[in-house]
Simulated assay, not measured.
Amino acid sequence: MQPSIIIADDHPLILKGLHDFLIEKKFDIIDSATDGKAAFELILKHRPDIAILDIRMPLMTGLEIAKACKVKGINTKIAVITFEKSAELYYEAINLGVYGYILKEFALVEIEKCIKSILLDTPYFSPELMKHLESLNIPKGFELLTGTEKRIIELISKNQTAAEIAELQEVSIRTIEKHRSNIIKKLNLTHKPNTLLIWAKENQDFF
C-alpha cells in the first residue's frame, strides 16, 4: 500500500511538476497547497503519512509547519525541498525531526529515493547538500546550538558584554551567563577567560 502524501510549494510550475512526477510513479497524492497555512490545514485534516513542503512559503514556512506538527504530536513525516544549501536551515530541520531535505535542482531525481527512505524510517538528505556542508568545515558542536545561543555568540564576537547582550535580548545578565555556560559545554570549550570570545571571533563567518 502506497503512503498518503501531501505536497506544497508556492511556485505553481514546481508544484505541478512534482505532482505529475509522483502520480506517474503511482504515489498516492491526496492533496496539494500553494502556501504554508493551507498546507498545515491539509495535514491537520488528512494526517498524511508524508508531507513534502517547500521551505520558503507564504504564511507558514516548511520548517514552521514541521514545528507545529511536532508541538501537536502529529506523526506525519516531513520532507522539505529548497534551493538553499544553508547550514543553519539544515540544522534547524534536524532539530525539528524533519525526515528529508532535498535540493530543488535534484528534486525529480531524489524525491522517490527520499520517500522510500522515509518509509524505512530512515531520514534522507540530498548528497549534494551533505557534500556542500562538509566543505564548509562547520565547527564541532555547532549543530547543537539553539537560535538564541547563536545570536549570543554573534554578539560576543562583536565584543558585546554580558550586560549589553542582556539589554539587547531583554533578559537578565544571569540568563545570559547561563546561556554562555551552556554554549561552552556544547562546544566542549574550557572555562578559561575569553575562551568563548576567541572561539566566536574565529568562527564569526558562521553567524
Rank of each mutant, 00 (worst) to 15 (best):
I81H: 06
I183C: 10
N95T: 13
P139C: 11
N194L: 13
E143Q: 15
D49K: 07
I94T: 12
L18M: 15
G141Y: 07
S4V: 01
P123Q: 03
I43Y: 03
E202S: 14
L89V: 04
T76Y: 02
F83Y: 05
K192L: 12
L22C: 05
Y99H: 10
R180G: 09
L133Y: 02
E24Q: 15
T175K: 02
I152W: 03
R56W: 01
P127G: 13
M1N: 09
G147M: 08
H46D: 12
K131V: 04
K201V: 05
A107S: 09
K201I: 04
H179S: 12
L108Y: 09
P139G: 10
E177S: 04
K104I: 07
L145V: 09
K25N: 14
I6W: 00
I198N: 11
V98P: 07
E128G: 11
N95F: 05
N182E: 12
K70H: 14
K113P: 00
V171K: 09
M60H: 02
K178V: 01
K25P: 05
R56I: 07
E154T: 06
A200W: 03
Y90K: 06
P3K: 00
K45W: 10
E164S: 15
K37W: 00
K70W: 06
I14C: 04
I184N: 03
I50V: 13
D10F: 09
L18T: 14
E92W: 04
G147P: 00
A66F: 05
Q2Y: 04
E112P: 05
I152V: 15
G36M: 00
I165E: 15
E149C: 13
L22D: 02
E154C: 08
S157K: 05
I152A: 13
K45H: 14
T195M: 15
T146G: 09
I30T: 02
N182C: 12
E134D: 10
I165H: 14
S135P: 10
T61M: 01
I156M: 02
E84Q: 15
L15S: 08
K72D: 15
K116E: 04
E164M: 14
E149V: 11
V71F: 07
R151D: 13
L119D: 06
T161A: 08
L42P: 13
S32D: 07
P139F: 11
G147Q: 09
I23G: 02
L22Q: 03
N137G: 13
V71H: 07
I6R: 03
A93H: 09
D10T: 08
A162G: 11
L15Y: 03
L96K: 14
L59R: 10
I14D: 04
K25W: 03
G100N: 00
L120W: 00
V109T: 11
H11L: 13
H132V: 01
E154G: 08
T76N: 04
I153V: 12
I198S: 11
L42Y: 05
L189M: 11
L155G: 02
I102V: 15
K178P: 00
K70Y: 09
G147R: 11
Q160M: 13
D20Y: 08
G147Y: 00
L197T: 14
E64F: 06
A39I: 03
L196A: 14
I138D: 03
V109Y: 06
S157I: 08
D205H: 14
L145H: 08
S157M: 06
L18P: 03
L59T: 07
K140M: 08
N75Y: 00
L120M: 08
